[in-house]
C-alpha cells in the first residue's frame, strides 16, 4: 500500500472519526462491552456485519469513481446499471451516485446511523477534495442529497432543522471515491473500510473504558486475518449493486437509536 492510501487509512485523518464510537459507547452504557473479552467479541461481530457492508460499498464506489472519470466509459461500460436503475437522473454518472447512495440507505435501517454516516461522509469529503482533487469527489459534492431527514437530539436536545446538516454523501461512498482519487484499487478501498470499522471502535473503547491500549492493540492484531478476509470478500464486485452484501446487525441498529436518545453522549454515534 502506498503512502497516499496510508494517509487515508490513518486515524489521524482529520475527518471527524474521533467523535464516532461505532456503537461502542451505547454498548458500554448498556453493559454489553465492559472489558477486553467483550470488546473483542463486539469488534468481531461489527467486522462481519457493518464492516463487510461498508467495505463492499466502498469497493463499489471506488470502482465506479475510477470508471466515471470519463462519462463515455460510464455509458459504454455500465449499460446494465443504467437500465436497471434508470429513473430520474439515472442516465449519467451523477444519477448513478444517487443510486449508490440509495444502496447505502437500503443497508442502513437505523435513521441514527444514516445521519452518522452522512456526517462522516461530509467530513471525509471535505478532506478528500482538499487533498486529492478528483471529478468523482466533485460529483459527490454536487449531487448528494442535500436535505436529508435530520435525526438528532435526546430528551435534552431539541430537534432542529439544520438545512443540509443531515445531507451529503454516505461515508463508505466517499471513502471509496477518495481511495480512487488517491490512486487506490477497490480491494484497497475495502481494506481501509474494513480496517476502520474496527479500529475506530477500539479506540473509542480505550477512551471510554480505560482499557489497556496494548491489550486492545493485541486484540486488533488477532483480528487482522479476519479483516483481510472481509476486505477480500467485499471486493468481489457483483454485476449489480443490488447484489452487494446486505448483512444486518439489528443489535448495532438498536444501540445507535438508543444512543441518540440517551442523556449523556460523549460520541456522536
Amino acid at each position: 500500500m502506498d503512502t497516499r492510501l496510508l494517509l487515508l487509512a490513518d486515524s489521524r485523518l482529520p475527518a471527524g472519526g474521533h467523535a464516532h464510537s461505532g456503537g461502542v459507547e451505547p454498548a458500554a452504557t448498556a453493559g454489553a462491552v465492559t472489558d477486553l473479552a467483550s470488546l473483542s467479541d463486539f469488534l468481531a461481530a461489527r467486522l462481519s456485519t457493518a464492516g463487510l457492508v461498508t467495505a463492499a460499498l466502498a469497493a463499489a464506489s471506488c470502482s465506479f469513481a475510477h470508471s466515471s472519470r470519463d462519462h463515455a466509459v460510464v455509458r459504454a461500460g455500465l449499460g446494465g446499471q443504467l437500465h436497471d436503475h434508470g429513473g430520474e437522473g439515472g442516465r449519467d454518472g451523477e444519477g448513478l451516485w444517487r443510486v449508490l447512495d440509495a444502496e447505502v440507505d437500503a443497508r442502513t435501517p437505523s435513521p441514527a446511523q444514516r445521519t452518522a454516516s452522512r456526517a462522516q461522509g461530509r467530513a471525509l469529503l471535505r478532506v478528500a477534495r482538499t487533498t486529492w482533487p478528483h471529478p468523482a469527489l466533485d460529483a459527490l459534492a454536487a449531487h448528494s442529497p442535500r436535505d436529508h431527514a435530520v435525526v438528532r437530539g435526546g430528551p435534552r436536545e431539541q430537534l432542529h432543522d439544520h438545512g443540509r446538516w443531515g445531507g451529503g454523501p454516505h461515508h463508505p461512498v466517499v471513502l471509496g471515491a477518495a481511495a480512487a482519487a488517491a490512486g487506490g484499487t477497490p480491494r484497497q478501498a475495502a481494506a481501509i473500510a474494513a480496517y476502520g470499522s474496527v479500529t475506530g471502535a477500539a479506540s473509542a473503547a480505550v477512551r471510554l473504558l480505560g482499557l489497556d491500549p496494548l491489550a486492545v492493540q493485541q486484540a486488533l492484531a488477532v483480528l487482522a486475518d479476519d479483516v483481510d478476509a472481509v476486505a477480500a470478500r467485499a471486493a468481489a464486485e457483483p454485476d449489480d449493486w443490488a447484489a452487494l452484501p446486505a448483512v444486518s446487525a439489528p443489535g448495532l441498529d438498536l444501540l445507535a437509536e438508543l444512543h441518540l436518545r440517551s442523556e449523556v453522549r460523549l460520541f456522536e454515534s
Binding site: 489521524r12 482529520p14 475527518a15 471527524g16 472519526g17 474521533h18 467523535a19 464516532h20 464510537s21 456526517a119 461530509r122 467530513a123 471535505r126 478532506v127 436536545e157 432542529h160 432543522d161 439544520h162 438545512g163 443540509r164 446538516w165 473509542a204 477512551r207 471510554l208 453522549r265 460523549l266 460520541f267 456522536e268
Partner: peptide, 29 residues
C-alpha cells in the same frame, strides 16, 4: 436555532485543533 452542540468523543481539544471537521460542519450549517 442559532445554537448548536457538537460532541467531541472524550477529546475536546481534538475537536478544535487536530480534527475540526464537526465544528466546521456546524459553523457552516
Amino acid at each position: 436555532d442559532r445554537i448548536t452542540a457538537v460532541r467531541t468523543g472524550c477529546c475536546p481539544h481534538t475537536a478544535i485543533r487536530d480534527d475540526i471537521a464537526a465544528n466546521l460542519d456546524a459553523v457552516e450549517s
